[in-house]
Simulated assay, not measured.
Amino acid sequence: MPPQQGWPQPQPGWGPPQPPKKNKAPLIVGIIAGVVVLVTAGVAGFLYLGANSDSGSPKRGGTMPEACANVPAAALAKARTTNGNPAMSKQRKVPDGTQTSCAWDQTNGEDGSGLRNTDAYVVVGDAAAEYERRVSQSKQNNQGTINERRLDGLGDEATVVLVDGKSAFLQLDVIVRKGDTVVEVEYTGWDSGVFGNKRPDVTEFEAAARGVAEALLADA
């Protein structure tokens, strides 16, 4: 039915009022922020798990020399090197006696992350000359600043030599003479951090090396 003449005609835009359009910016910002948080958490978790994953290799078989085999499991666990390496552990004759070398590294699943290596030498013979030779040789390391001091309560005389470099890598040698026996324990490694390796605690390092040295001296 056509509109009656004289009535106002509908104008464009007339009709019921429309609800105001919602501002979607806060929602979009919230979604983006949530995605950023999830991604950041995922990356941080990935880095943390990677940095703290177990190091080392599967447990080896084989027989270690008697002096090495006598080191108790507790001392090796404290040093986080429970994986004996028979291929690198030998006993041989030297002009004035015998020399035994022992090597341990980390067992995967037992000794944690980071890096730890324990190498030890037991020399029976001309102990006084051998002790001085090994202390001097240890101080010739050019990988960092050398810190040396005497250790009390260990053998007839004992020295600890710390090689303190600029990197996270740490080396600490404990050299002991007891009677006609000289023991040297060379302990090396670093700890894992989220964004890179970090320097281990020197006090813990020394305690671990000293524990292995004491065990090797037990029968001297």
Score class of each variant (00 low, 15 high):
P65C: 04
A213L: 03
N108F: 09
V212Q: 04
A158D: 07
A208E: 02
V124K: 10
G34F: 01
A77K: 15
P26V: 11
A51S: 14
K90A: 12
L27A: 11
V194N: 04
R210C: 00
Q4E: 10
P72C: 00
R150D: 14
E186Y: 00
G61N: 08
Q4I: 10
E206S: 04
G109L: 13
P86I: 00
Y121L: 11
N52Y: 12
R150F: 05
Q106T: 06
A73S: 15
P200H: 04
Q171D: 04
I146T: 03
A44P: 02
Q9K: 11
T107I: 09
S192H: 12
G165W: 12
F169K: 10
L47G: 07
W7K: 00
S192Y: 13
V124T: 12
Q9P: 00
T203W: 01
K166I: 13
S101Q: 14
I28L: 15
E204L: 02
N197E: 09
A215C: 09
T118I: 04
D180H: 14
K24W: 15
D54V: 00
V185Y: 08
R210Q: 10
A168T: 06
L38Y: 02
I28Y: 15
G144A: 11
N141G: 05
P3L: 14
S138G: 01
T98A: 02
G30T: 08
T203Y: 03
Y131V: 05
I28C: 04
A25I: 14
R149A: 10
N85T: 04
C68H: 05
E214Y: 01
T82P: 02
S89A: 08
S89M: 03
M88G: 06
Q11F: 05
T118F: 04
Q9M: 14
A75S: 14
V183M: 06
E148A: 11
G13A: 07
Y187F: 10
L216G: 02
R60V: 05
V182E: 01
R149C: 07
L217S: 07
E204Q: 08
T145P: 01
G211C: 06
V185L: 09
D173P: 11
P8T: 12
A77T: 15
A87V: 07
P72V: 04
A25S: 11
V183F: 05
S89P: 02
T203S: 15
Q9S: 13
L151H: 04
R150S: 13
A129N: 13
V183A: 09
G97S: 04
K178G: 05
V135I: 09
P58D: 10
N141D: 14
V163S: 11
T63R: 12
R210E: 03
A168G: 13
D164S: 09
L115F: 15
L217R: 10
I175K: 00
L49Y: 06
G45M: 10
V39C: 08
G6D: 01
L115G: 06
A74T: 15
V122M: 03
F195W: 14
L172C: 01
S101T: 13
N70P: 07
L27R: 09
R133M: 00
D180L: 01
E66V: 05
G144K: 08
Q137F: 00
E186V: 15
A67S: 09
P2T: 15
E66S: 10
